[in-house]
């Protein structure tokens, strides 16, 4: 991928992320993520209806990588069935952790295919958050 194009996508999503700001609504699942190795601290909320993700919102303080990854992840998941979402999350995590993955499933999330080792946790934050909220369904 062209480096300028990659940077442009990441920065656009960092400067103007999708669905930033939480709302008062008890029908949403909620979680907070902060990892030991990273100082990002984000709150997430997600609405599921008919096995489909209807909405994801977030807020908090975080670096350029985790904020942009959250924004792109939200855009990629809204409207998708849960089974499909699980597949995307798994492949995204595999990509970040340098394992085999299906590029076709990830769309714009492919901008993180060459992430530096010390930024992996940042990039993983949105997928960890959505995973945690999906766990609550079980």
């Amino acid at each position: 991928m062209d480096e300028n194009f990659r940077r442009e996508i990441i920065l656009d999503n960092y400067n103007d992320p999708m669905n930033r700001g939480l709302i008062e609504d008890d029908s949403y699942l909620k979680t907070r993520t902060n990892s030991e190795s990273c100082i990002d601290d984000l709150n997430f909320m997600m609405k599921i209806e008919d096995d489909t993700i209807k909405d994801i919102r977030f807020d908090g303080e975080a670096c350029a990588i985790s904020t942009s990854a959250t924004s792109i992840m939200i855009r990629s998941l809204i409207g998708k069935k849960i089974d499909e979402v699980r597949k995307i999350l798994l492949n995204y995590q595999n990509m970040i952790n340098e394992k085999e993955y299906d590029k076709e499933l990830l769309g714009e999330l492919n901008v993180y295919d060459n992430i530096q080792p010390n930024r992996k946790n940042c990039a993983l934050i949105p997928s960890v958050a959505v995973d945690k909220m999906l766990e609550e369904l079980k």
Binding site: I39, A62, C63, N118, R119, C122
Partner: peptide
Amino acid sequence: VFAQDTAVYLN
């Protein structure tokens, strides 16, 4: 700029 981004930059 988020503090961590600055630290990554300085690195």
